[in-house]
Design a binder for these strands. Structure first.
Lengths: 146, 146
DNA sequence: TGCACTAATGAGATTGAGTTGCAATAAGGA
DNA sequence: TCCTTATTGCAACTCAATCTCATTAGTGCA
């Protein structure tokens, strides 16, 4: 795993404490691992990545759930029936979200840049689509499989 | 369950035979049930709806999978970790798809009319987004929960 | 029509991700 | 440093999804 700088360690510590969570080895490892990812990871992925550190499946699972509960990470199913977790990124004061893309052939999951797609709200669309709290998920062929 | 007209029965029969599947009671029941739905149904939903007919869970399950395999139905997970199945609707020669909407609060799943949202392909978006084979799924608050 | 072939069914068994119970441990406030 | 209680690690459990296999029943063909 990526070596963490003292600054990062301090930030993770503060993040957890602000959320009312104790700072434990497994928890820090989970947060820092998620911070190093560019796509959502599943519980199984996380276990694989951190198994060398000897953390228990259930511990990692509960940490993911705890982090999701306090709003540090999101927990979503991207259409392939696997729960995936991802750090919520912030810019200034509000959470920035981005569309998720799943390849219908190889199953690869990736995060699209915010600008990649735009939703145009038409007739009969729910009103909330006008707000920012909209999760968009797209399934199609990725460039590699096309 | 909805009574089926002889015409419908004939269409279901033809649909299955064209796909190379035998026409059996459970299979016909599954197809006709799906045809009568306006939103994707889960395996559990289907079992509940058809249990009075005495069909086995495994039979219904395999039928859903078979139908999905031959392309008569789609099988997707709408973000709530439940597999849902839905008839592919055709207009003339090609499959018409529509975006799915899941309420992030109450979990209700609904199909949006095709015109409700439009994807605008921007920078860094996979090329295949320009084609028709794109499944779109949106999670936000429904009008009732907003 | 009747027959043979094989897909499909039904009942039960199995799998595995997701989740929980509990005693032991350790974080953090006093 | 001590005390409280959140957290851990292990094992066990749950339940949907999936498979096994003997039996049944659609279909094509004679």
């Amino acid at each position: 795993m990526r070596k963490r700088s003292p600054k990062e360690a301090g930030e993770t510590h503060a993040l957890l404490r602000e959320a009312g969570l104790r700072v434990t080895d497994p928890r820090v490892a989970v947060v820092e691992h998620l911070l190093g990812q560019t796509a959502p990871v599943s519980h199984a992925d996380l276990c694989r990545s951190l198994e060398s550190a000897g953390f228990d499946r259930a511990t990692l699972y509960r940490n993911l759930m705890d982090l999701a509960q306090v709003g540090i990470v999101t927990r979503t199913d991207l259409g392939d029936h696997v729960w995936r977790f991802e750090m919520k990124r912030r810019e200034g004061n509000h959470v920035v979200s981005h569309p998720h893309f799943v390849c219908s052939d190889c199953g690869t999951v990736s995060c699209l840049p915010d600008v990649a797609v735009r939703i145009v709200r038409g007739k009969h669309a729910p009103r909330s689509l006008a707000t920012k709290n909209v999760a968009i998920q797209i399934t199609a062929l990725c460039d590699a499989c096309a």
